[in-house]
Design a protein around this nucleic acid. Structure first.
Length: 704
DNA sequence: ACCTGATATCCGATC
DNA sequence: GATATCAGGT
């Protein structure tokens, strides 16, 4: 059996598949068969006799890599054993494990997830009494975000602060100090965060040319997917690995770049041709996914961009329903309306072929409640991850501590579970353990039976290594009772989570590998029920990247939500929001719904605040969609019919007309965007550095 | 001295 | 829902 490229692919795709010598840059529009092209290229390479081991496929998630490999082997009718496929991070991890000693690292280093890194930030901050009792000192999460941004964008903390958080500039020195202490702490205790994986790999490749050359020889064919979302180090890593004349293919779409917040830059696409002078550039512009009406609307979103994209997708399917603009009265009724729309669409499409997309994880809460009530099964991507739940972290903490006794975040978690031990004692114990001072330890052990039991348990497994599953079974014996006391309300749910973790663990024989996978590629939100069940997808737009559904509904297309309020004052950020919206719309094959609620319910003020439609929606010509409004009876009504009444009765704040809403100046907060008027004389204003504030009218000066 | 529970504030997207 | 600090108890 061999591939019929001419029958299965269009000419551009064929070119991309067969250009296997030298560097290739593929600019692949949304839905242009990018994945298909990569799959055929994989298969084609192997068919031509390339050793699968020589292929390196770098993708955005491991899931993506795995899916491509499975589909390619199905196409070929043979397994593709030996292909290295995964994320930059997982690739870096496996190289570093093998060559850790070359960098003065322990080969069993621990990888920190975000929460772990925050814990370390907190610890160095407290130990050095930085920002002590200062309420306005940035929180550990903010501190970590800034440090990581600085590293990812390879800019000084000062310039990051100046651009994104100028109100924190007065803490610059403290933040720099924390950053240094954080780096030193990781180094000292064999801990690596996500950024370290990439930078350490780069160091290794530069300092050890023999290792670099070995990898170059091994991976004669490199493919990089989602190239628009790689950051500077990743770009350099590709260059190091490929060499100047390497057989490297980068696939990306500058119009879909949505990760600049973590340092991704389209510069990598632009500079690809400079790094590899003989690059062939291939464009895929024919869209095989969406109907023409959906593409028309999507193209229109891009045409409003500041930076122009020199492509316009055209569809293979002309016919199709126009996108729908749904305008519920509030975000609460939006959930209701989306639910009924899904039930209608269900007549045409299975649940698994539909998705509801949103900007941030919490935006689906209302809908989730209703879906549960209505008994509609769903899976959610983005938002809280399986491994971020407290009980899972507790369990993994024990395992990590067995593997690396100096893993501080794990230590803190485990010790916090022991009665009578709080943060101070835990810290002191940790210091004693690291320094090998047994006196203090013994003293406490004698007093605290529970402490002795836990330490003995950990010690036992260090002496007698066992499978992750067996270790977990043993730890559960003592953790299970704790679960009930600490989570009296929802421990059954958490019990299920632990069972799932056991299930996953049972397929691993190596503890280190299991732990690494849990941080690097945490399992998708594990549904409790049958995995084959027909389920609706709820997802953040970011997590929906690369995926497609027949019907897609996008929530909360109002200012502050989508675009996010963090982006309102920053032009570049707004452009990224625009591309994000573009990505959301181009996920849809035949049905697209855009929701623009008239008001948002504000839990903490206990009232509904009016909204303004997203500017990206406002600039769309009404010809591009059919509009429906929610009537006061809760039903959708085609727009253009006589309206019943202007304002809902319960609305407490008056909606400002578009002309009245503008910018204002505040003596302390600076310039901000007026979001709403709250009678009698207050305003809700979004200040770029301070966030949303309710201010009294007398204190601000309205512009215009 | 330090643990533990109560209370106010804020909330983006990911490996 | 989480984080950080405060107040009360041992």
């Amino acid at each position: 059996m061999y591939l019929d490229l001419e029958k299965d692919l269009n000419p551009s795709q064929q070119e991309a598949v067969t250009a296997i010598d030298g560097p290739v840059l593929v600019i692949a529009g949304a839905g242009s068969g990018k994945t298909r092209t990569i799959i055929y290229r994989l298969a084609h390479l192997v068919e031509l006799g390339a050793d699968p081991q020589s292929i390196l496929l770098l993708t955005f998630t491991r899931k993506a890599a795995q899916e491509m490999l499975t589909r390619a082997s199905r196409l070929l009718g043979q397994g593709l054993h030996g292909v290295t496929g995964g994320t930059f991070h997982s690739f870096a991890n496996s190289v570093l494990r093998r060559h850790a000693s070359g960098l003065g690292l322990r080969h069993d280093f621990t990888i920190l997830d975000r929460g772990d890194s925050e814990e370390i930030v907190k610890q160095v901050k407290e130990a050095n009494r930085i920002g002590h009792k200062d309420r306005s000192f940035p929180k550990k999460g903010t501190v970590l975000t800034l440090i990581s941004k600085s590293r990812n964008k390879e800019q000084s903390l000062e310039s990051i602060l100046g651009k994104e958080a100028s109100h924190l500039l007065l803490y610059l020195e403290d933040l720099q100090r924390i950053s240094e202490l954080y780096q030193a702490f990781k180094q000292e205790h064999s801990l690596l965060d996500y950024d370290d994986l990439l930078f350490h790999l780069e160091t290794l490749l530069m300092e050890r040319p023999e290792i670099r050359d070995f990898l170059r020889r091994k991976h004669g064919h490199i493919m990089v997917d989602e190239f628009q979302d790689t950051n500077l180090v990743q770009g350099r890593l590709v260059r190091h690995l490929a060499g100047e004349e390497g057989n490297v293919m980068a696939v990306g779409d500058d119009a879909q770049s949505i990760y600049s917040f973590r340092g991704a830059t389209v510069r990598n696409i632009l500079e690809f041709t400079r790094s590899f002078p003989d690059t062939r550039i291939i464009k895929l512009e024919q869209n095989y996914r969406s109907t023409q009406p959906i593409l028309d609307l999507s193209n229109r979103i891009l045409s409003g961009a500041k930076e122009k994209y020199d492509k316009e997708l055209f569809s293979s399917w002309q016919e199709g329903a126009k996108p729908e603009l749904l305008s519920p009265l509030s975000d609460l009724t939006q959930a209701q309306i989306v639910l009924s729309r899904i039930e209608e669409l269900r007549e045409e499409h299975p649940l698994e072929d539909m998705a509801v997309l949103f900007r941030a994880g919490f935006q689906s809460y209302h809908l989730e409640v209703l879906l549960n009530k209505a008994g509609i099964p769903y899976q959610k991507f983005g938002g809280l991850k399986f491994t971020e739940a407290a009980h899972i972290k507790d369990m993994l903490g024990h395992l990590r501590l067995i593997q690396n006794p100096t893993d501080l975040p794990a230590w803190q978690r485990v010790m916090a579970l022991v009665p009578g031990i709080g943060p101070k004692t835990s810290q002191r114990l940790y210091n004693a353990v690291v320094k090998g001072e047994t006196d203090y330890l013994e003293q406490l052990r004698a007093k605290n039976k529970e402490l002795a039991a836990v330490l003995d348990l950990l010690h036992y497994f260090r002496q007698n290594p066992d499978t992750p599953y067996n270790i977990m079974e043993r730890i559960l014996e003592y953790y299970q009772p704790l679960l009930k006391t600490t989570y009296p309300d929802d421990y059954p749910k958490r019990q299920v989570g632990l069972d799932q973790l056991s299930q996953i663990a049972s397929s691993y024989s190596d503890l280190n590998l299991f732990l690494t996978d849990m941080t690097l590629e945490p399992p998708d939100q594990v549904g409790s029920e049958d995995p084959l069940e027909d389920r609706l997808t709820l997802s953040t737009v970011h997590s929906a990247k690369g995926l497609e559904w027949s019907a897609v509904i996008v929530l909360d297309l109002v200012e502050e939500r989508f675009p996010s309020k963090h982006a309102l004052m920053d032009e570049e950020a707004m452009e990224e929001e625009r591309r994000l919206f573009y990505v959301a719309c181009t996920r849809a094959k035949s049905r697209l719904g855009l929701c623009v609620p008239h008001s948002l319910h504000n839990r903490y003020q206990g009232l509904s605040t009016p909204t303004r439609p997203s500017p990206f929606v406002q600039e769309l010509s009404p010809k591009l969609y059919d509009a429906f409004n929610e009537s006061y009876s809760g039903r959708l009504q085609q727009a253009g019919r006589p309206k019943e009444r202007e304002e809902p009765a319960e609305r407490k704040a008056r909606q400002l007309g578009p002309d009245e809403l503008g910018f204002c100046k505040h003596r302390i907060f600076g310039r901000g965007k007026v979001v709403a008027f709250i009678p009698p004389n207050k305003y809700r204003v979004n200040f770029p550095s301070f966030g949303l504030k309710v201010v009294i009218g007398d204190y601000i000066e309205l512009e215009g």
